[in-house]
Deep mutational scan, measured.
Amino acid sequence: MSGNGNAAATAEENSPKMRVIRVGTRKSQLARIQTDSVVATLKASYPGLQFEIIAMSTTGDKILDTALSKIGEKSLFTKELEHALEKNEVDLVVHSLKDLPTVLPPGFTIGAICKRENPHDAVVFHPKFVGKTLETLPEKSVVGTSSLRRAAQLQRKFPHLEFRSIRGNLNTRLRKLDEQQEFSAIILATAGLQRMGWHNRVGQILHPEECMYAVGQGALGVEVRAKDQDILDLVGVLHDPETLLRCIAERAFLRHLEGGCSVPVAVHTAMKDGQLYLTGGVWSLDGSDSIQETMQATIHVPAQHEDGPEDDPQLVGITARNIPRGPQLAAQNLGISLANLLLSKGAKNILDVARQLNDAH
């Protein structure tokens, strides 16, 4: 009898209710805020589980004197976190989706994509230029951005401005803007500013005609071990179906173009009346040469937790077992079709030249 009692006690200790789920994140304040929001949602869904947040620095956090596009290494903000995932030191990792490459290392998958916040870019102005827009900034004003995508589009749109690289986390960039006289304004992701509670610093939100956004911008991705079915089931509740389908289309477009950090590629997606609209573009580094096109596809946005595919093969690095396969494939095909259209119009040449120029500098 006593033996059975011990077995029952052991089973209770090993039951999922007692389990601590370890969540990996970057150390920056924004990353911690984003991770806290994901953990809060998981806690609400699984009140019996405990969650421990483990923060670590990544290569991208450490190399702050070089433009991201020049470092010449993929997975700048993800490699150390993936290493911890691989060694079973954490069970899942919360990322900004735009930091996750469209091809993940073997053994990993994006197990959830959370509801997207505003994906557009924002302009934050130096205190002396508050009330201005990019259009009304004085001639030769210097605007800071760490992104080739932003610089290429904005140089084309605002030729009277000069664009220079600015690195560091959000706090560091804002301090550089406010305390030094080098920059009249800087460009940042609206979602990051909003998550930090800095709505009052948003001086201008850039519309798609001015600057399309990065693939996955404004959404959070939760990376897990691809074979860890328990954790895949656990994080599945975080999937937002519309965000998922938009981001599958965007990531398929980028992957098929073979774009990345070192080339200016941008997108804009919208879901309306059962249609998914995808606009994508590529630019030369100075913005003088560009190709942009829009395509659409009829896609039914499923309700969360309709029964999805059981075999769960990944699409552009994403596993969404609780979302039907048909809409996911339709979104992926839309991204591939748009990429093929741009490639047929000469996108590869623009991107190759951009890559060579970026590598040469």
Rank of each mutant, 00 (worst) to 15 (best):
S37L: 11
S37R: 11
A44V: 14
S45H: 08
P47H: 10
L49R: 08
L49A: 14
F51E: 04
F51M: 09
I53H: 01
M56G: 06
M56D: 14
T58D: 03
G60V: 10
D61L: 13
K62V: 14
I63D: 00
I63L: 13
L64M: 08
L64Q: 08
T66Y: 06
T66L: 09
L68F: 06
K70D: 09
I71A: 00
K74T: 07
K74H: 11
K74W: 02
S75G: 12
S75A: 13
L76A: 06
T78V: 09
T78Y: 06
T78E: 01
K79T: 09
K79P: 09
E82T: 08
E82M: 03
E82C: 06
H83I: 09
N88W: 14
N88P: 07
E89R: 13
E89S: 13
D91A: 08
L92W: 02
V94G: 04
S96P: 03
D99K: 02
D99M: 04
P101R: 00
L104P: 08
P106T: 13
G107K: 07
F108Y: 13
F108A: 02
T109V: 15
I110Y: 03
I110Q: 00
I113H: 00
C114D: 10
C114A: 06
E117A: 07
E117V: 13
E117H: 11
N118A: 14
H120C: 12
D121T: 02
A122V: 13
A122I: 04
V124H: 01
V124R: 03
V124M: 13
V124A: 12
P127V: 07
T133W: 09
T136R: 11
L137C: 06
P138F: 08
P138A: 13
K140H: 08
V142K: 11
V143W: 03
S146M: 06
R149W: 03
R149K: 03
R150L: 00
A152T: 14
Q153C: 08
Q153I: 03
R156W: 11
R156H: 13
R156Y: 05
F158H: 14
F158N: 12
P159V: 14
R164G: 10
I166N: 08
G168C: 02
G168H: 03
G168R: 01
N169I: 07
N171W: 14
N171L: 12
T172A: 13
T172H: 06
L174H: 08
R175D: 06
K176D: 09
D178Q: 05
E179S: 11
Q180I: 04
Q181R: 12
E182D: 06
I186R: 02
L188K: 00
A189N: 03
T190R: 07
T190W: 13
T190P: 06
A191G: 06
L193A: 00
L193C: 01
R195H: 11
R195T: 02
W198P: 06
R201W: 09
R201V: 10
V202C: 12
V202L: 11
G203F: 00
Q204A: 01
Q204W: 03
Q204G: 07
Q204S: 15
L206R: 03
L206E: 01
C211L: 11
M212W: 02
A214V: 03
V215C: 15
V215N: 00
G216A: 03
Q217R: 03
Q217T: 02
Q217M: 01
Q217A: 06
G218K: 01
G221V: 03
V222M: 09
V222P: 00
V224G: 05
R225V: 07
I231V: 13
V235T: 02
V235M: 12
V237P: 14
V237E: 05
V237A: 04
H239K: 05
D240P: 03
P241A: 06
E242R: 09
T243V: 01
L244E: 01
L245H: 05
E250P: 02
R251N: 05
A252V: 15
A252H: 01
F253K: 00
H256R: 12
G259D: 11
C261N: 02
C261D: 05
V263L: 12
V263Q: 15
V263G: 00
P264T: 15
H268M: 15
T269A: 09
T269F: 01
T269V: 00
A270R: 10
Q275V: 13
Y277W: 03
Y277I: 03
L278Y: 01
L278M: 06
T279S: 09
S284V: 01
D286V: 11
D286R: 12
G287S: 06
G287A: 04
G287D: 06
D289C: 04
S290D: 06
I291R: 15
E293I: 09
M295S: 04
I299H: 10
I299M: 15
H300N: 13
P302R: 05
P302M: 13
P302A: 12
P302V: 14
H305R: 04
E306D: 07
D307V: 09
D307S: 08
P309M: 01
P309A: 10
E310R: 13
D311V: 11
D312N: 15
D312P: 03
D312L: 06
P313L: 10
Q314H: 10
R321I: 10
I323N: 09
P324C: 05
Q328V: 05
Q328A: 06
L329I: 13
Q332H: 15
Q332W: 13
G335P: 01
L338W: 01
L341T: 14
K345T: 15
A347M: 06
K348T: 04
V353T: 15
D359H: 13
